[in-house]
């Protein structure tokens, strides 16, 4: 099984050097566990959504009708596309193709930026009409879910940006390097995507359009 090649000296900067293959296994399992925590985190929020929707079907129906399906659908397509480019990036990293990895990470980052722009249009439109968290239970749930999703998009963008610069330096594609970082970044980004896949129909489509 596992065997450290070098003895760690036990401090933060030089603890132990894992063979890349082992690190890869660790990171992937760790990321899957982290994704499970994310599912439970949003699961609690979805539970609140369903309880509130069950209690106040009319408020949810009317609130949902005020959201723009074209904007929401566009954002869904953008996020799905960025997930696709992310998957191509992981594939490029596996094939040690530095150029394609850098391109794909840049495209993914652009997709995330597009998502933010549309989200900004939607939120600022709502806020300018005086619709705020606490206006009614639907919009409280709307702002909480999309807001927390947005925070996850921002964290994802930070990491994608980080991967972009590391990829430029060849940290994932050089001889003897590990592409585990790209792999777990991809997993995270797909989770951000899939949460949106649930949010879009629940918030935008289940209304009185």
């Amino acid at each position: 099984m596992f065997n450290h090649k070098d003895a760690p000296d036990g401090t933060f900067f030089n603890f132990h050097k894992e063979p890349p293959l082992v690190a890869y296994e660790f990171f992937k399992l760790g990321m899957w566990i982290f994704l499970a925590t994310e599912v439970l985190f949003f699961g609690g929020l979805f539970a609140a959504y369903f309880i509130m929707k069950f209690k106040w079907p009319e408020i949810f129906s009317l609130g949902s009708a005020q959201l723009s399906i074209p904007l929401g659908a566009t954002n869904t397509v953008i996020l799905l596309a960025s997930s696709f480019t992310m998957a191509l990036g992981v594939d490029a990293a596996q094939r040690k193709d530095k150029g394609r990895l850098v391109t794909m990470l840049a495209l993914t980052f652009l997709g995330a930026c597009g998502f933010l722009v549309i989200k900004y249009i939607e939120w600022s439109g709502k806020i300018s009409h005086g619709i705020l968290p606490g206006s009614d239970v639907f919009f409280s749930v709307y702002y909480m879910t999309t807001g927390l999703h947005l925070i996850h998009v921002l964290i994802g963008m930070y990491y994608i940006g980080l991967m972009f610069f590391r990829a430029l330096q060849g940290r994932y594609t050089d001889e003897g390097s590990s592409h585990a970082g790209v792999e777990v970044g991809g997993l995270y980004w797909h989770l951000v995507d899939i949460i949106w896949i649930f949010l879009f129909p629940l918030l935008y489509l289940l209304g009185a359009h």
Binding site: A48, M52, W56, I59, P133, G134, V137, S140, Y143, M144
Partner: peptide, 12 residues
């Protein structure tokens, strides 16, 4: 923010 999800007065 007073989102009201746990507040019976606001429908929570």
């Amino acid at each position: 923010l007073g989102i009201g999800i746990f507040d019976a007065g606001m429908g929570g």
